[in-house]
Nucleic acid binder design. Structure first.
Length: 546
RNA sequence: GUCCCAGUAGCUCAGUUGGAUAGAGCAACGGCCUUCUAAGCCGUGUGUCGGGAGUUCGAAUCUCUUCUGGGACGCCA
């Protein structure tokens, strides 16, 4: 609704600008003023036109507002303030209708149609060689929330996890397990470079010993160790993610690209199209043709492939599946990889502009003021499961979501644990639970609730914050989707909760006056719907009771 | 040496097409429960936006420079 109002207003404004002699393309946009006393929405268009029109912003603004058709747009007041802002005040009664809109559309409220493009978002993509750690958790949280936001914005989204089951690391996993298995029978484990040292490897070896005894002690059980280890870890990965409220549509196997010949085909195509050359016995890809700082090796002099080669085939595969956009969420240590990958995609004829790479920065866990590095579970870096056990999936997802991906983040366990009631996620969940409890109270008191279809008995001014916040939901969704910033949703959920708490303290909801009660409850229900939906976008559950 | 991210209140962070007096939470202090959940509300204080220069009507935001912290720079994955 508000989008429509603003869009209509925008059209009117463009007409007005034309009549003022503005021919160039300027985009008009509205923002919510920091100080709501300034108005409901404002635009700075007058200031931005000052130079081309060679007039003072205030003069231009006054010209503009004198031509605005106030009645048509549900505006009750429009004025010029500050350096030339145009501030709009809308009719309260009209704006309050957003509540009925929410009730009608339910969880579809805020659904917008930015685009129906097909988007593939690849995230986590952890090697199945150990447990997920906290940085994976951050990527999982971001990728999953972004997917939900994009879906709500109309995109056709596929969530994909790439499984590195084709390369050397998976062989090393097999060897590592094998050595630990031998160790269990009293032999020395020979843990070479590149082998995996997490406690989970020992656990797997024990499990295998229990399952098959000494069957693979003296004959070659390597294949079995490799496969069994990977299956086990992959399942663990899926379980962890599921408990973290993250599920993938596609688990894409790197190995499948070798099996069906796509890696080879990609390589041959690159050679045929003259994107490669040989040097020192290796085959190099001319990524410098497309903005990379140096060329990259595809085939090493020992004839084995680098990581890049199957990854090119993988991205080619994704593009061939008809996606309009590919989003890759990668760890901070991959930023040097971006140019290389984009260049390589260009070499195979893909459009690198379709590929968006989001880099997530480090996560540190802080307890008692110092960084915690060791996980009891894996004996290595802190795992996602460690944190979930400590603070729960909801709290951790909210904490991840609340911060922009580009910020190196400190996760303060003291705050998350000892002061759980100070944690923002509880604040938002509490708002929801409070409303839920109102409806429970009704049942206890045997009061019947009837949804109203207009407001006549309540003081709309007191509901201002709630109404304005509800109105902004679609706008926030749009911004979060276009800029790929899920933390906007976390901020939004918090501000809606804040509006609710404030109102709840100020006004008694269930009163003797049943008309008033029904109107208030109608509004409460709308708030509840949007709170639930916004938390859902973050993968956070609501609680009926706290 | 090159590149990326960060530097904003005591702490954790918002502030992303340059705009109004730079904002939240936590921490601190003062009020508010005979009444729907006080995990709440209301109020108070807090800033060389790392430093310096520039661009302009206007800069936390853009440019240059510089300092600090983290990370990346492989025929690793």
């Amino acid at each position: 609704m508000i989008k429509k109002i603003l869009d209509d207003l925008k059209i009117d404004l463009y007409e007005i600008l034309k009549s003022l002699g503005v021919n160039e393309d300027v985009e008009i946009f509205f923002e919510v003023p920091q100080d709501t006393n300034f108005g409901d929405f404002s635009t700075n268009i007058a200031m931005r036109l000052a130079k081309t029109l060679r007039k003072s912003p205030v003069m231009i603004a006054k010209d503009i507002i004198s031509r605005i058709d106030v009645a048509k747009n549900h505006i009750i007041k429009v004025d010029v303030a500050g350096a030339g802002f145009i501030n709009f005040f809308f009719d309260r009664k009209f704006l309050s209708e957003v509540i009925f809109e929410v009730l009608k559309e339910k969880e579809n409220f805020g659904n917008i149609k930015i685009s129906d493009e097909k988007v593939n978002i690849e995230f986590v993509s952890a090697n199945p060689t150990g447990y997920l750690h906290i940085a994976h958790g951050r990527g999982a949280s971001y990728g999953d929330s972004l997917s939900r936001i994009l879906k709500k914005s109309g995109y056709n989204v596929t969530k994909e996890h790439y499984v590195n089951d084709g390369g050397n690391q998976i062989n090393n996993l097999g060897f590592s397990i094998q050595q630990r298995y031998f160790e269990l029978f009293g032999r020395d484990a020979k843990m070479e470079d590149g082998y995996y040292h997490g406690k989970e490897i020992i656990e797997i070896a024990k499990m295998i010993k229990e399952e098959v005894g000494d069957k693979y002690l003296d004959n070659d059980g390597y294949e079995y160790f490799r496969q069994r280890g990977m299956d086990y870890l992959l399942q663990g990965l899926k379980d962890d993610l599921k408990d973290f409220n993250v599920e993938f549509d596609v688990w894409f196997s790197e190995k499948s690209l070798y099996d069906n010949g796509e890696v080879e085909k990609t390589l041959n195509q690159l050679i045929k199209d003259n994107h490669t050359y040989e040097l020192d016995g290796a085959i190099w890809l001319k990524t410098t043709d497309y903005n990379d700082e140096k060329d990259r090796v595809l085939v090493k002099s020992d004839k084995s492939l680098t990581y890049l080669t199957p990854d090119i085939a993988y991205h080619k595969n994704k593009l061939s599946r008809g996606y309009d956009q590919l989003i890759d969420v990668l760890g901070a240590d991959h930023h040097g990889y971006i140019n290389r990958l984009k260049a390589a995609i260009a070499c195979v004829g893909g459009n690198p502009d379709k590929v968006h790479i989001e880099i997530l920065q480090m996560v540190r866990v802080i307890q008692d003021g110092v960084e915690v590095k060791m996980s009891k579970r894996s004996g290595k870096s802190i795992t996602l499961r460690d944190i979930m056990d400590e603070v729960g999936s909801d709290a951790i997802r909210y904490m991840y979501s609340a911060k922009a991906l580009s910020t190196p983040m400190d996760l303060d366990l003291d705050l998350a644990l000892r002061q759980t009631n100070e944690n923002p996620v509880y604040y938002v969940q509490y708002a929801y639970a409070r409303i839920a409890s109102l409806f429970r109270m009704l049942k206890e008191k045997n009061i019947e609730f009837k949804e109203v279809s207009s407001f006549t008995n309540i003081n709309l001014e007191k509901c201002d914050k709630i109404i304005m916040t509800l109105l902004q939901y679609p706008l926030v969704i749009e911004e979060a989707a276009l800029k790929r910033l899920p933390h906007k949703i976390a901020q939004y959920a918090y501000s809606l909760a804040s509006a609710l708490h404030s109102y709840y303290n100020d006004e008694k909801i269930i009163t003797e006056n049943s008309l008033e009660t029904n109107e208030k409850l109608t509004m409460m229900k709308a708030v509840q719907i949007v709170l639930k939906d916004s938390l859902n976008l973050l993968g956070v559950n609501v609680k009926e009771k706290m």
